[in-house]
Amino acid sequence: MTEAIQNVANPQIEVKDLNLWYGEKQALKNINIRIPKNSVTAFIGPSGCGKSTFIRCLNRMNDLIKSCRIEGEVSIEGKDIYGPGVDVVDLRKQVGMVFQKPNPFPMSIYDNIAYGPRIHGVNKKDIEGVVEHALRSAALWDEISDRIRSPAFSLSGGQQQRLCIARTMAVKPEIILFDEPCSALDPISTAKIEELIMNLKKDYTIVIVTHNMQQAARISDYTAFFLMGELIEFGKTRQIFENPGEKSTEDYITGRFG
């Protein structure tokens, strides 16, 4: 593990000796990582390497899978999110997630974004402001401000994904997890999402799983390379891509497998 990263002074996310099993099969082995605040961290690696499984540990989405068992510690802001007395619902307010396929609810654009704040008890008269702010932050406002009452499914795939990002931001998380957010999108939509993600790191800590190495290189500050359930290497993105410390990282990045 690289010196620079181990010394991240105040990591927002700190994972110690994380092991995860699906039934008998171990999917993550001894993961240790410290993710700094207000940065973009990319998880890369071949299919089945555990990167998506790992990102879902950070907001406990794996709780939904019955056979899943976890050991180790995941701290966010110094607090173990798997510790006793942790409210998963509160955790997920703090750690938002955008999924692989754009998945708006079958409601209007407006209601999709208002949904979270409404349930979290935001004042009725403030909701409109929250919706507009979220849409502006997701760079969607200018395209759709005249039809926010129309169904979310009337948007293009890329717009739907930005809507999902806006929906996530509307509940004011500190961390946003992206699980291959562009894998179902065309190149132009992908470019817009990438630009958005780079802008978002001012306000949020971003973790992104991606299949696309160019994407990791373009948008991330830090890169973690996973292979067969292990974290092989983690460091500044430039260093990982230009001067990887491990042979397997180099092989993956140069396209020799994956």
Binding site: M61, R92, N103, F105, Y115, G116, R167, T168, V171
Partner: peptide
Amino acid sequence: PEYRESSLALGISKWQTIRHV
């Protein structure tokens, strides 16, 4: 299942997810 997942990921409880989505 995506509806359930994305609602839960917004920090919305299971019952509220069922009730509203």
